[in-house]
């Protein structure tokens, strides 16, 4: 097994009384596609921001690649690029922030946007905007790519395309870390699943192995049995909806 490129050691972080990480440890290797899953409010996005260097841990250490240049790429959930610019201009702009030469057309072709280089970003569909975000993540050839729910709200076809593009990035030797609620796609595409709940990584392993260990049929069942409805604690599931009251 290769050396970890991204690692939390005794990591803790919280917002006031809300604990996101509580003395958590995890090490992630290059060339792997990792999914961080968990119930709503478990702190997946915050954990990604901590991994990506957008936030500081309260205590503990985070280790990132020691290379020069861009070390971690980050794609937030539902990014919107500056309106009025073409797809190629967006990639060219971000390319101007790194030391190396960037072939905007080649990067865009890599994610499937080769035919949309002159289209304005405000005319792109949600899926194409995420693909542009993926293209941006390749700029500077960072060894770690962090994606926050890159397929939320997208149709299954474009979601599969995005997962395939992310898997292809990992196959090139990068560590690709994504959050997702699409557990079916996670089962199909990723090498490793981390489940975060109550400030800890409570499950960690390849999706097939997790399913087998739990004696379940699907990753979704493993997820549900592990979090045991903790995501529902904050809501009143039995509350009557308007339709029910009729």
């Amino acid at each position: 097994m290769s050396e970890p490129v991204l690692e939390f050691a005794a990591a803790s972080f919280g917002f006031g009384d809300v604990t996101i990480l509580d003395d958590a440890n995890v090490a992630l290797e290059d060339g792997t596609f990792v999914a961080l899953v968990g119930p709503n409010g478990a702190g997946k996005t915050t954990a990604l921001e901590l991994f990506a260097g957008l936030r500081s841990l309260d205590t503990g250490t985070v280790t990132r690649p020691a290379t020069t240049g861009r070390t971690v790429a980050y794609l937030p959930q539902s990014p919107r690029f500056r309106p009025g610019f073409t797809v190629r201009e967006v990639v060219t702009f971000y390319g101007s922030l790194v030391e190396t030469e960037v072939d905007a057309d080649a990067i865009l072709s890599r994610v499937g946007l080769g035919g949309a280089t002159d289209r304005r970003v405000d005319e792109l569909s949600g899926g194409m905007t995420r693909l542009l975000g993926l293209a941006q993540a390749l700029i500077g050839d960072p060894p770690v790519v962090v994606l926050d729910e890159p397929t939320s709200g997208l149709d299954p076809d474009i979601a599969d395309h995005i997962f395939e593009a992310a898997a292809s990035m990992a196959a090139d030797g990068r560590l690709v870390l994504t959050t997702s609620h699409d557990l079916e796609a996670v089962s199909r595409y990723v090498d490793r699943v981390l489940l975060i709940a109550n400030g800890e990584f409570v499950l960690d392993g390849p999706p097939a192995a997790l399913v087998e260990q739990a004696g379940a049929e699907r990753l979704r069942d493993v997820f549900s049995s592990t979090v045991a409805g903790s995501g529902r604690d904050a809501v009143d599931i039995d509350a009557q909806t308007e339709g029910d009251s009729a």
Binding site: E49, A52, G53, L54, G69, R70, V72, A73, Y74, L75, P76, Q77, S78, P79, R80, F81, R82, Y94, L97, V98, G133, Q136, G140, P142
Partner: peptide, 17 residues
């Protein structure tokens, strides 16, 4: 504020600027 609201400020921060 616009860069922050669109999420592009987070993206920019992963460059060395």
């Amino acid at each position: 504020r616009g860069d922050d609201e669109r999420g592009t400020l987070s993206i920019l921060r992963t460059y060395s600027v």
